[in-house]
């Protein structure tokens, strides 16, 4: 029986889709049977991030409205043809085409065949978000260490409680170690203290994410990517392994400290 994990954030652009694609791929690399569902109807993107955009025939709304069988809408990831699938969002419809009950029914059908169902939530707190969290067993909240993203994440923590989903876990994305070191970006303990939920992963800001996405690949397949390593660690934690958090501090020499200090002095 699959676990349903919803990846959400409140604020847009903090890395929900990238997180979903990387976690799904990483879990599949470990032999888990995984389906990633793009719940962002009208603004579909998980297909592009996973490099599967050319193979879409049916979508989530087709399944819900009975125009195809669920199995027909699942797109096989060519890298893991036996155990990684995408259920794409519809691009031409809006969020109201699907209800929370539809999502629960769909996930119940998929649970039998998979180990993990990952749902990429749309930004915001309206219908699309409600659809995405309705079937969730676990919720991952993605934020960056910026004020607006953390504030929105706090709102999501409150809503998750209001919808009687327990114990959401936090992923802090796009941490810039050099800015943290010079006191210009909130550090992991600050964000964890503010949101007061359990941390499940920290991901460094990493150019390799942009490059992988450009190519339709995902960072977890790139051995040299620090962000990829961070996502692999999160996937391992989801599998119940006890993995220490990455150390993201960039050691700063005396010269770098001096340069930074004069740069940031006002």
């Amino acid at each position: 029986m699959a676990q349903v994990i919803t990846i959400t954030s409140g604020k847009g652009g903090v890395g929900k889709t990238t997180t979903t694609a990387n976690l799904a791929t990483s879990l599949a690399m470990q032999g888990q049977r995984v389906v990633a569902i793009d719940a962002d109807i009208g603004l579909r993107n998980l297909d592009v991030v996973m490099g599967l955009e050319n193979r879409i025939v049916y979508d989530l709304v087709d399944v819900v409205e009975g125009r195809c069988r669920t199995r027909q809408a699942l797109i096989k990831d060519k890298r893991f043809p036996d155990n990684l699938f995408l259920l794409p969002a519809a691009q031409t419809r809006d969020k109201d085409a699907v209800t929370p009950d539809d999502m629960i029914a769909l996930c119940n059908e998929l649970r039998r065949e998979f180990d993990f169902i990952l749902i990429d939530s749309p930004a915001g707190i309206e219908g699309g978000f409600k659809n995405a969290i309705a079937p969730a067993d676990h919720i991952l909240i993605v934020t960056t260490p910026e004020m607006s993203a953390v504030r929105d994440a706090d709102r999501i923590v409150g809503l998750v409680e209001a919808y009687e989903k327990s114990n959401p876990k936090l992923i802090i994305n796009r941490i810039k170690a050099r800015m943290v070191a010079r006191g210009d970006m909130m550090d992991t303990p600050d964000v964890v203290e503010i949101l007061a939920i359990d941390l499940v992963g920290i991901v460094p800001d990493d150019e390799s994410i942009v490059i992988s996405t450009n190519r339709g690949e995902v960072a977890v397949l790139d051995r040299d990517s620090m962000a990829g390593k961070a996502y692999n660690n999160i996937a391992n934690r989801l599998l119940g392994h006890d993995i220490p958090f990455l150390v993201l501090d960039e050691k700063q020499g005396l010269w770098a400290q001096l340069v930074n200090m004069f740069r940031t002095r006002r």
Binding site: M147, A181, M186, D187, D190, Q252, M261
Partner: peptide, 27 residues
Amino acid sequence: MGFLDNLFGRKQPTSSSVAKERLLTVL
């Protein structure tokens, strides 16, 4: 950057501590 700040007497709070304070109030 601890000791260098002390050496040059930089007293202003860092922008991250300002952010944290503001966030706590807003939340």
